[in-house]
């Protein structure tokens, strides 16, 4: 029998499905199909706090709403950023918007990268494609508290050199002596002098101590599958590998059912999971 729940008086809480109008302050084109927005609540700058890895639901007037990770620096509490790849109806409509336009924002939602729990350890970040966007706040936070961590390694794979996200920032990070940055592309023209090959090929030689490392992984599901396999081969334990999962989302608060992944709701239990929590279904077809 289902245990009964006390039905309490309605709380005067804000309607969780109602967005807050936010204004685009700046648009930056990252690649041919990817752009970054800097946003602020439309009624003026207000404190906006989030944890690296969390996402917002962005509503385009009359078109629809999509989950997009927050890609800005968590230290910036005046504005927040999103980096979006235009792939379909809503994200293409988003690309048409300009500075000054207003959209609806709900959030932040979901679990965060385990930045605190990683203190004292090496941190390996593996990103594929747009997957670098939700990892950017994590890297900002790690660098802001650099002394608390061992080695920090960023391994990033993009399809072609033209698809590399945040190239200037990557260049700046690469120049830091306390951060190891390696970038690879799946295929390239002759002008590219960097690595060619999938991102997993960077893992075997990456400089970190597996017994004392935490891995943060975000990218397409197949990429994460091979990445996790390589990281485990290097000896990182399943509970110290963290993956960010993606499913269709219509509410972000556990009501619509769309984001179910086995027993988990990706919107509230995820999107970031320690790998051992999803291991039994990870890679199973059509779950």
């Amino acid at each position: 029998m289902a245990p009964t729940l006390e039905i309490s008086e309605p709380k005067a809480a804000a309607d969780p499905m109602l967005p807050v109008p936010c204004r685009i302050r700046r648009v930056r084109n990252e690649t041919a199909d990817t752009f970054t927005w800097e946003l602020q609540p439309a009624d003026g700058p207000a404190r906006f706090a989030f944890q690296p890895g969390q996402f917002n639901m962005l509503y385009v007037f009359g078109v629809g709403e999509v989950p997009i990770s927050i890609s800005g620096d968590p230290a910036d509490t005046q504005s927040f950023r999103h980096t979006t790849r235009a792939v379909g109806v809503v994200t293409r409509a988003m690309r048409q918007l300009r500075a000054g336009d207003v959209l609806g924002v709900r959030g932040p939602f979901g679990s965060a990268w385990p930045i605190e729990a990683a203190a004292g350890r090496d941190v390996v970040i593996v990103a594929g494609g747009i997957g670098l966007a939700p990892l950017r706040p994590a890297l900002c936070r790690l660098l802001a508290q650099r002394r608390r961590y061992g080695r920090i390694v960023l391994l990033y794979g993009a399809r072609t050199p033209q698809d590399i996200l945040f190239p200037h920032e990557l260049e700046r990070w690469r120049g830091k002596f306390d951060l190891e940055v390696q970038v690879t592309v799946d295929r390239s023209a002759d002008t590219w002098r960097g690595n060619v090959g999938v991102v997993t090929t960077l893992i075997p030689c990456a400089p970190f101590e597996p017994a004392n490392a935490v891995a943060l992984v975000c990218g397409p599901e197949v990429m994460m599958r091979y990445t996790v396999r390589e990281l485990q081969r290097r000896g990182i334990a399943a509970d110290r590998i963290h993956v960010s999962m993606e499913r269709n989302m219509k509410c972000a608060i556990g009501f619509c059912g769309h984001c179910q992944y086995g027993p988990a709701f990706i919107c509230k239990d995820g999107p970031i999971f320690p790998f051992d929590r999803v291991e039994s279904i990870f890679g199973k077809a059509e779950v």
Binding site: F61, G62, V63, G64, E65, K250, C251, F255, C256, G257, H258
Partner: peptide
């Protein structure tokens, strides 16, 4: 069963 979707109109 509780699942829902959303529809937008303008």
């Amino acid at each position: 069963c509780f699942c829902t979707t959303v529809e937008d109109t303008a």
